[in-house]
Design a protein around this nucleic acid. Structure first.
Length: 494
RNA sequence: GGCGCCGUAGCCAAGUGGUAAGGCAGAGGUCUGCAAAACCUCUAUUCGGCGGUUCGAAUCCGCCCGGCGCCUCCA
C-alpha cells in the first residue's frame, strides 16, 4: 500500500500523491524566536521530522522549508523590554533553536527563510493582492485582506459552521477594517516598531508584515525554483488551522489563482497534566530542561512517537521513564545484533549476496508491518510496536542460537532502516577518561575476587559501582558495564 | 454560544463493526555464585456511564458524566 495521510482540508484520509513525483515540497511552520521553543513546539517538529524521514525512506525527494518568525508582536515586545533591537533579541533564540533541533536529531530543513529577510517577497505579494482588489488600505494605514472577496474563505477551518462568540476577543483595530474578520497583511509602523527596528518601507506605507503573509510569501518564493505555486504538504500545530493557515490559503490562492497546498497536516498538542503548555499556566518545559535532567534525546523521540500525531500527548515523568527504558532495550538489541553479525570484530559481515538468500521470517514480517504502519497516516505507535516485536523475536532466536551472523546481518539492516526513520538509538553518555579508568580498575578487581570465589568482595564492588550509576553484566566473554544516563560520570573518584 | 478533540490495565498508548497491539511498572519462572541482560508465563471477560442499531460494537447512533483545545497573531 502507498502512503495515506489525513488531510485537514478534506477531513479525510487520502492517498498521498505529490504534484510532481518523486519531488515533494513540504512547508512546516517554524518557531517564533521570541524565546526558547518548548517541548510542545518540538512535538510538532518531531512529527514533521517523522513525516519527512518516512517520505525520504519511501523514495521521495523532499524539499523541506521551515520558516523562522523573527518579527511579530511578541518578538517586538520582548526586544523592547530588553532594550535591544529586534535582531539582537531574536538571534540567540535562533541559535538555541538550531541547537535544540540537533539535540533531538531532527533533520534540518533545506532552507530556513526568515521573515525579516523576506520583506521584499511579502511586499510583492501584498502589492499583487492590492492590484487584484483582494486587499485594501485601512484608515490606520495598515493593509487588510478582504475575506468578502474570497468566497472559499473558511474551508480549512470549516468556518461556515462557526459562529463567533458574542463579545469574544474583539480586535482593537476593528474600526479600521471593513469587516472584523479581515486580517492584516501589513501593519502600519508604530513607534515601538521603529524603536526596535521592525519597520520597513513599502509602496503602501511604512510598516511591518502581518503574521500570515510571511508563510505565503516565503513558501511561494521557495517553491518558485520548481516553477510551481502549490506545495505538496503544509504542516503545523492544530492551533494554526485557524486563523493562520486559513489566512495563508486566502492570501496565496487569491494571488496565484492556484491551490496553495495539496495536503494540510496538523499535529496535536503535547500537554502537561491535561493542559497545554503556555506561559500563562507556567508549565513551560524546554529542551534545555530535558538536557539538564540528562534525558536521552532518543527517549524523548520515543515518547513522542508512542502517541499518534493527531492525538494529544500527555507528558509526565513516568511516561518519559518508560520511553527511556525502551530506548535502552533497543540499544542493547542493536549492539547484540551488531556483535553477532561480526561488526565488532571489524569484519564486514557476510557477503551481500548471502543476505538476500535467506531472510528470517521475523525480519520480513517486521519490514512489512513497519512500513504499513507508517503508510497508514504515520501510525508511529504501531511502527514502534512492530519494532519491539522484532526485538523480542530477535532476542529469542539469538538466545537459542537459531540466528547466525547472516541472520543477524539481515536483521541489523532492517533494524537500521527503521532507525533511519525513527532514530531511537540511545546516545552514548559522555564518560571522561578518569572515570573510565576507575571503573575498569574496579571491574578488574572484582573479576579477580570472583576468580577466587570471594563473592562478598565482588558484590561489594558491584554495589559501589552501582552507586555511581554503573551497571555490570557478567557474560561468558567477561564483564560488560554501562553507565546509566544522568549519572555522574566525571571527575576523579576516590 | 459555535467548531473540534478526548475518556482503553498502576502509568503511556494502538485499535474505528468481528471478538482487546506495544512499551514501562508488577508477579512467577529459565539462565546466573548471586545479580544484570535476555527469554517464557501471568497481569483489562473488558474499553467513562446508560440506552439503541446489528448475528456481532471499544469501534455506528442518542443521551448523560468528566477532561481539553480553538473562536484573529499560541506548535
Amino acid at each position: 500500500m502507498s502512503l495515506r495521510l489525513y488531510n485537514t482540508l478534506t477531513r479525510r484520509i487520502e492517498t498521498f500523491q505529490p504534484l510532481a513525483p518523486p519531488r515533494v515540497t513540504m512547508y512546516t511552520c517554524g518557531p517564533t524566536v521570541w524565546n526558547y521553543a518548548h517541548i510542545g513546539n518540538f512535538r510538532s517538529f518531531l512529527f514533521e521530522d517523522l513525516l519527512r524521514r518516512h517520505l525520504e525512506a519511501s523514495g521521495y525527494r523532499v524539499f523541506h522549508i521551515m520558516n523562522l518568525t523573527d518579527v511579530d508582536d511578541r518578538t517586538i515586545k520582548a526586544a523592547a523590554e530588553g532594550g535591544k533591537s529586534l535582531s539582537e533579541h531574536t538571534e540567540p533564540f535562533v541559535r538555541a533553536f538550531f541547537e535544540d533541533r540537533d539535540f533531538l536529531r531532527i533533520r534540518p530543513a533545506h532552507v530556513y527563510p526568515r521573515a525579516t529577510t523576506s520583506i521584499a517577497a511579502m511586499v510583492e505579494l501584498i502589492t499583487t493582492l492590492l492590484e487584484k482588489g483582494y486587499a485594501y488600505i485601512g484608515e490606520d494605514g495598515s493593509v487588510y485582506f478582504s475575506i468578502a472577496k474570497f468566497p472559499a474563505y473558511g474551508r480549512l477551518s470549516q468556518l461556515d459552521k462557526r459562529e463567533l462568540k458574542v463579545g469574544a476577543r474583539v480586535s482593537s483595530d476593528e474600526y479600521d477594517k471593513d469587516d472584523p474578520r479581515d486580517f492584516a497583511l501589513w501593519k502600519a509602523a508604530s513607534p515601538l516598531d521603529e524603536q526596535v527596528g521592525a519597520a520597513w518601507d513599502a509602496p503602501f506605507g511604512r510598516g511591518r508584515p502581518g503574521w500570515h503573509i510571511e508563510c505565503s510569501a516565503m513558501a511561494l518564493s521557495e517553491i518558485a525554483r520548481f516553477g510551481v505555486k502549490t506545495l505538496d504538504i503544509h504542516c503545523g500545530g492544530v492551533d494554526n488551522i485557524f486563523p493562520h493557515h486559513e489566512d495563508e490559503i486566502a492570501q496565496s490562492e487569491a494571488a496565484t489563482g492556484e491551490p496553495f497546498a495539496r495536503f494540510w497536516l496538523h499535529g496535536e498538542f503535547l500537554n502537561i497534566r491535561g493542559t497545554k503548555m503556555s506561559k500563562r499556566y507556567g508549565n513551560i518545559l524546554t529542551v534545555r530542561d530535558l538536557k539538564e535532567e540528562g534525558v536521552d534525546p532518543a527517549a524523548f523521540r520515543l515518547l513522542v512517537f508512542s502517541t499518534h500525531y493527531r492525538q494529544p500527548l500527555d507528558y509526565n515523568d513516568q511516561a518519559l521513564e518508560a520511553a527511556s527504558e525502551g530506548v535502552r532495550r533497543l540499544g542493547e538489541f542493536h549492539e547484540r545484533l551488531s556483535e553477532v553479525a561480526g561488526e565488532a570484530a571489524g569484519k564486514e559481515g557476510p557477503a551481500t549476496g548471502v543476505v538476500a538468500a535467506r531472510v528470517p521470517e521475523a525480519v520480513g514480517e517486521f519490514r512489512r508491518q513497519f512500513k504499513e504502519a507508517l503508510d497508514d497516516d504515520l501510525n508511529a505507535p504501531q511502527a514502534v510496536a512492530a519494532l519491539f516485536g522484532l526485538v523480542r523475536e530477535g532476542n529469542r532466536e539469538l538466545d537459542r542460537g537459531a540466528w547466525g551472523p547472516e541472520d543477524a546481518w539481515v536483521a541489523l539492516a532492517a533494524f537500521r532502516e527503521a532507525m533511519d526513520v525513527l532514530d531511537l538509538l540511545p546516545g552514548e553518555p559522555e564518560i571522561d577518561q578518569e572515570f573510565r579508568a576507575w571503573v575498569e580498575a574496579k571491574v578488574a578487581e572484582r573479576q579477580a575476587a570472583r576468580r577466587v570465589r570471594d563473592y562478598g568482595r565482588a558484590d561489594a564492588i558491584r554495589d559501589e559501582l552501582r552507586a555511581r550509576g554503573v551497571e555490570l553484566e557478567d557474560t561468558p566473554d567477561g564483564t560488560r558495564w554501562r553507565v546509566q544516563r544522568g549519572a555522574g560520570t566525571r571527575g576523579a573518584v576516590q
